[in-house]
Computed example of a mutant assay.
Amino acid sequence: MAQGYKPAFAPYALSSGDLIHLSGRLAKKDGALLIGKVGAEVSLDGAKTAARDIAIELLGVLKQATGDLDRVSRIVRLFVMVNGAPGFNEPHRVADGASELFVEVFGAGGAHARSAMVAAELPFGAAVEIDLVAEICGEASDRSAGVGASAAEPQGGSQ
Rank of each mutant, 00 (worst) to 15 (best):
K48C: 02
S23K: 03
G146C: 06
V128F: 07
F102D: 01
N89A: 05
S73C: 15
G107F: 01
P91G: 02
A126M: 08
L62V: 07
T66G: 04
Q3G: 10
I56H: 11
D45N: 08
L19R: 11
D53I: 09
M117K: 15
S15C: 08
A2Y: 11
I75E: 00
R71S: 09
G157K: 09
D68V: 13
V147Q: 11
S141W: 01
K29M: 10
K63Q: 12
I35H: 01
I75V: 11
D142I: 14
I35V: 09
G97K: 07
A47Y: 05
Q64T: 15
R143M: 14
V103G: 06
C137A: 13
H92C: 12
G157R: 04
I56Y: 10
A55R: 01
P154I: 06
L14Y: 14
P7K: 05
V76L: 12
A95K: 03
G138E: 03
G24R: 07
A127T: 06
A111C: 12
R93N: 12
L44S: 07
V94C: 07
S141I: 03
G4W: 06
L62E: 04
E57R: 09
V61Q: 03
G110K: 03
V82Y: 01
K48N: 06
P7Y: 08
A119I: 14
G4P: 08
A152N: 12
S144E: 06
A149K: 09
V147I: 15
H112E: 00
A65Q: 01
R25D: 04
T66C: 02
M81N: 02
G39H: 03
P86H: 02
A2G: 12
S23Y: 00
A51E: 08
N83K: 02
K6I: 12
A98H: 10
D18I: 07
A10T: 05
L59E: 01
D96K: 05
G148Q: 01
A152V: 15
I75R: 01
S115H: 13
R93T: 05
A151D: 09
G97Y: 03
A111H: 12
G156W: 08
A126S: 10
G36C: 13
T66F: 01
G109F: 00
V42I: 14
A27L: 09
G84F: 05
R77N: 05
A51C: 15
Q3S: 11
F102K: 02
P154A: 13
Q159G: 06
A120T: 11
E100M: 08
L26Q: 00
Q3I: 15
R71N: 06
Q155V: 14
A95V: 03
E121M: 14
